[in-house]
Design a protein around this nucleic acid. Structure first.
Lengths: 217, 217
DNA sequence: CGGTTATTGTGATGTTCGTCACTGCGGGCC
DNA sequence: GGCCCGCAGTGACGAACATCACAATAACCG
């Protein structure tokens, strides 16, 4: 992970990716207090149980958010993309609580990290910040409900297709690099089941498979 | 549903059930704008797709929150109890969006309804209101993540036990009135499966079954 | 190039439900 | 009492995976 302070650059990035944060004073505050951070694809940004110290405003790339239970079962929840933030971090900040989720850089990712101590103050001071935070919450909530729908109501083949589509979008590419085992972990399924379903999808002409590679057609 | 304006009573209820909303001005505002509402057990408070017009502060009873997909599959999410509010309503208000959930009174329930147009203004004006809203969001988020854990990682017998425990708590009674079919709907399972699992739980000495009645031991 | 390791394919078998087709039971109501 | 009807119990069968045990490739590396 590489960090840098770069006031003018932050200003420009915010204006470009977060136009809804329109107040000049807020933009200045972000430029003053924020830090540009770079994460390499695959690097762990925040693990379960970690105390969150920054709130990320994502600029470039994408972040995979997932959940793990006590026994180590893992489950993919959703991706965060540029223009979005992690609402989970948000409450962790305010409440000084441990993280319930894990975040990993899906691609090479750039974000502006805001130290948590400003969250609360800005909520009262800048209406557009308040709206941004509330909207983020709402979007994440919706994302979680959709995840619930998916797990509760859909069968594995459909969940798999949804997953592949989401991953393709997060990576801006219809050709995905992933092993069947990794996918199985994300969907909390067995590798064999995923292999067989992928084979079926290939037979159906929906994907093309290679070693470590899945191409969506 | 019965509603009433009752300024002094609202003041007293708020102080009793929402001590964290400590600001006098806020309490006055709630008393001025809020309405006491009563719902009979089983009555529908808000359906899918409805536009939310009030935010409920629950005083007495409990509310069942559930989700339904396009094909009509239903799934129980969580209960709301006194001292809590429905964060989902909250964003619906702000964004003027349709509801993603259904809420039904589990017991006879009393709540204070706050018209949605005050939500936003109060957020900026009263820090304790802002904190209350943020905390509610966080709690609901956590509740959703726990629901995901339950569906994704647990088998039906464990989910059933969890469900019964939650229902017992919501109803303040270890003796529940419900048909196997109703439970099956809430867990998105088949009646037969629930019947068999309950029978097994009875054999294990965990519950005692009767017609329309389940007693937790 | 050969050997090692990561990845994928495949068959056999078991478990957890879902579905279907009934039976039995209990309570209310004519 | 006899009749319904909603609820609960039950057996048979199948579908959707999980699990286990390997075989078959493909990549990688000294």
């Amino acid at each position: 992970m590489i960090t840098e302070k770069a006031r003018p650059e932050i200003l420009s990035l915010i204006r470009q990716h977060y136009p809804q944060l329109a107040e000049r004073n807020l933009q200045d505050a972000i430029a003053d207090e924020g830090t540009i951070m770079h994460f390499k694809a695959g690097s762990l940004i925040m693990d379960f149980g970690a105390y969150v110290k920054i709130m990320p405003l994502i600029i470039k790339g994408s972040i995979k958010v997932s959940r793990e239970d006590e026994e180590g079962n893992e489950l993919f929840l959703y991706y965060l993309k540029p223009g979005e933030t992690c609402s989970m971090s948000f409450t962790c900040c305010l409440m000084d609580k441990k993280s319930e989720i894990r975040t990993v850089a899906e691609e090479d990712t750039t974000l502006i990290g805001i130290p948590t101590r400003f969250m609360d103050e800005w909520m009262s001071r800048y209406p557009s910040w308040k709206n941004f935070v509330m909207t983020s919450y709402d979007n994440r909530m919706l994302e979680l409900v959709r995840t619930i729908d998916s797990i509760a109501f859909k069968k594995m083949d459909e969940r798999l297709m949804d997953y592949l589509e989401q991953k393709a979008e997060a990576n801006d590419s219809r050709t995905l690099n992933a092993t069947h085992q990794e996918i199985a972990y994300d969907l909390n399924a067995s590798r064999e089941a995923i292999s067989r379903l992928l084979k079926q999808l290939e037979k159906d002409g929906v994907v093309q498979l290679g070693r470590n590679r899945i191409e969506l057609l």
